[in-house]
Write a protein that binds this DNA or RNA. Sequence first.
DNA 1: TTATGTACTATTGTAATACAATACTCCAGA
DNA 2: TCTGGAGTATTGTATTACAATAGTACATAA
Lengths: 258, 258
Amino acid sequence: MSNKADIKSLKRSPAYQLAEEALRKMIMEGKLKPGEMLPVEHDLADQLGVTRPTVREALRKLESSGLVVRGARRRMVVSAPSPRIASDAMLQAIVLHGISYREIWQMHMALEPMAAGLAAETIDMDLLSNIEANLRHTEDVLEDPEALVEADIEFHDLIARASGNHALLLARAPIGEFLFPAYGAVINKLGPGQRLLDAHRHVFNALKVNDAETARDWMTKHIRDFLRGCEMAGLPIDEPVHKVNQDWNLQRFQRESA
Amino acid sequence: MSNKADIKSLKRSPAYQLAEEALRKMIMEGKLKPGEMLPVEHDLADQLGVTRPTVREALRKLESSGLVVRGARRRMVVSAPSPRIASDAMLQAIVLHGISYREIWQMHMALEPMAAGLAAETIDMDLLSNIEANLRHTEDVLEDPEALVEADIEFHDLIARASGNHALLLARAPIGEFLFPAYGAVINKLGPGQRLLDAHRHVFNALKVNDAETARDWMTKHIRDFLRGCEMAGLPIDEPVHKVNQDWNLQRFQRESA
DNA sequence: TTATGTACTATTGTAATACAATACTCCAGA
DNA sequence: TCTGGAGTATTGTATTACAATAGTACATAA
């Protein structure tokens, strides 16, 4: 009637974890709503039946998952987690699992054409003129590697936003974080990007006439070109990204965490 | 010569945050490698020039981002964040930002064909025979909605793994979390999935002969079919996922957090 | 000899307390 | 109305201590 599978490992959770779960539950169930201030640490400690250090450990955990943030008067306020939390987690995973540039690029190869295709179907005049302005700007900075990379980033961001797909924006963020620095290295080696500008123009023209097929195709070409550029520049694309970034001194983790 | 933009807000970070960043940096840069044990709290405190409670707050933050986990002898060990961390963050973002089923599906529409295409180029005999076994199993459970969904999930997982792209696996996880329950709802309404089995078979055959093009095409058809199924079943695909899941009682967040 | 019990030790978990640093409030005074 | 400063609330950090637990080594009993 009893076998060893019945024993359920029983490990008590430490108090700081119980405290975290209690708070998290209150937030998830809506008893504490985003924007609301948490009680002060001392009161929290009393209410939860633990001491301040314990409460603080729980708060740090919630802080890291984005459920609370430091508010106006230094007080902790409940918050809906920002997309950055998800994006940062992804970024970390990419670095620490030794994912290669090629893998990142393959993702790019799936996502950017998708973005272009969707954008072609739904883009509005506003974003369209933004992209046009971006193209003009790109012409001007064709000889300035740094500015060119920035313009390129903006172009792709605009397309992604034009796609109207928020899941795409989430997934794209960490990808770009790695690829665009690499592009900087490529144009430093191979010179300015006339091909880049051409491709961007073709995509733009396709968006203008709502031609999803063509937008996708040109974007695909464009991304493939990028990989060729990396290969020609000698970037070891099958190495883990963190290694490549180290060896090439690519700027990364630029975003300050505060 | 000086305007107010010059003043850079200067806010000193608290010590627990500096400590966290110091440790995080060491981990991200590979000075502390996954699997390695951290020094005991007391020593950490000494090395960082802070006290134990402060170190503990930093550790709780790292714990929440998955960079360290409780190891064998209760000691903290460095860890490559499990995909779960990234996936959970993404999931949270998807829910809390009111992303719609259509948006999730569009991502699926980009990622699954990509997976199939890559898999066709690189798949090995081992995984291929796994997929074959999965197909045979799928035939058997065609009349059992629950088992069928499970088989479907397994099929797509196998393809994704066969792609050899770890970034794809990361990005795919939260997507599937939402879509597969929906598929369950669809077959409950529309009956068994002969079309599903056909599509799976075509993809498999393409993989077998390393025909990436065909694998991609059939997967695309398959995913498009899935959306049609959702529409026919009356699933309100333009509503935020969390709302749909509520209304339809789809199983979600099944994964226990402990 | 093997197994069981037992003290010992290292480390984490938690409490209690204290004080410094800072941000906010409010009031006096120019 | 603005400025400056005292008072206060709250967070940030240190200090110390002790309880709980997992690992270790050794002793004892079968």
